[in-house]
Amino acid sequence: MTEVTENRTATDVLTIAGLSKSFGGRLVLDDVSLSVHRSTITAIIGQSGGGKTTLLRCLNLLERPDRGLIAVDGEPIFDRRVVCRDLPELRRSVGMVFQRFNLFPHLTAVENVILAPLDAGVPEREAVERAVGLLRRVRLTHRATAYPEQMSGGEQQRVAIARALALRPSVLLFDEPTSSLDPESTGEVLRVMRELAGDGMTMVLVTHELSFARDVADRVVFVDGGRIVEEGEPGQVLGNPREPRTREFLTHFSQSHQSKE
């Protein structure tokens, strides 16, 4: 299995091989293998409960897999057990944005962004400068001293993105970042993510925004029943899927979205 990582270290930020995970006897991930190349966007799509979020959460070991291998920047972090010596260090290189933002409610927007770098030993002055720069990047300087509860969902999620970027991670994981947002806020967040993609940020996102995946992703992975059913270029997977199960999902998805509209 180490062979896999050695061969791909040059371009792969993330390598997963033979990953399995079950919760209380129910297999949630079943022998999943995937590589994420540097400066690419990988969109993971699929039904709720299909294992997408679990897969994402395994990547920074918020969830411990039962079997398999995970390597970040060519360095194995999980090989049938956790082999990463310094979990906090790993998590600083794998940023994560949650569906429900999870901002720290007792701190202002700018302090939310400052906290982790400061904790990681970045000098205060630099941490503050970095935070202000990142708030500018997500167009929220005017909300720097607002508390999360004073902000809209879209603003909170953009602060969460700035917070995840503050440690300069080599990859950013997004867990359904727009699922709890209204259409306008969704637009704001997707705009920021699009810009990040343009800047060459490596991103893995679990999403229901298929049109965003089609426009921005380099690779789309369809996960169902804990397995990768199909993966490939967005145009192919979303436009001309090979697998009947993918076609079925896309048909249901577009039907349910039409009926909503």
Partner: peptide
Amino acid sequence: GQQEAAEALGMR
């Protein structure tokens, strides 16, 4: 989610 967010940010 707060604990998890802090963990995901590499806080000890």
